[in-house]
Amino acid sequence: MDETKLVFLLFSLIIVLFGFLALHELGKGILYYIGVLLLLITTLFILAMNWIDAKLFSAITSILGITFQPAKDYTINKHQNAVIKEVNGIFYATGYITANLFAYTFREESAPEDDEEKMISAPELWERIVMNINFPFKFHVLASGLDVQGIRDELEGKRSYQEFQLSRAMQNNSNEVTLTDIRRRMNMIQAKINRISQGEKPIATVMYIETTAIGVSEKAALDALDAQVNQLRLSFSSMDVETSRIIGRELYSLFNFNFSLPTGMKELSTMFDNQS
């Protein structure tokens, strides 16, 4: 959770707290209980929006049947998982899947030989995937360089915290599993620090797959899109890619990326935090 979201959550919950303090002003009868109910619903809604906003939002639009027009000739369907365009009676439905290839771009804890094997097999795996797919798709890697010193300071802070955790666990005579876990995390952080020291540039990435399906009706296009998305998820599973269908506001952001990209890292990081 980023700082801005934390501030939003804090202020929104303060209003709810004031609401609890204001309850006695509503009297002791039925209005009091209505007030309690409203407060509980608001609290639940805010907390749900904090953790699962995309799912909650698409559930609301699905139930109410709300669709959006993000630009002329385009529509986002009520399930918030596709952008549809109609051209000359043909419907084009576009969907997005997250596809973060961490194994290939971030060599975290695996042994160098294992890492090398993955790097060697990657081009061949990619070609096999492309050869076996018989519909259009795009694999996007949106990358941005990060401030080297800032990242180094952050990693050193994390390492110090893990060292503190380790010493506390040793004082408390924690079991070997806990100690191994903390040591593993420390090794990962140290590996990242070493790589930065060796001159490697830290980058932030958002990787996603975009696919477009066609149909003579909106439903046919959406059905075809579902099938294509499933096939892509299956095909990319061979590359150890964590894939999930993108819904809600992130779909809107990715749709806009076709026409303009965010020009700063901060703007990019505020857009993706749940699904990507």
């Binding site: 795009k138 996007h140 949106l142 990358a143 941005s144 990209l261």
Partner: peptide, 8 residues
């Protein structure tokens, strides 16, 4: 931010 794409 730069986007790299491979498109079929």
């Amino acid at each position: 931010p730069v986007r790299y794409t491979s498109e079929l």
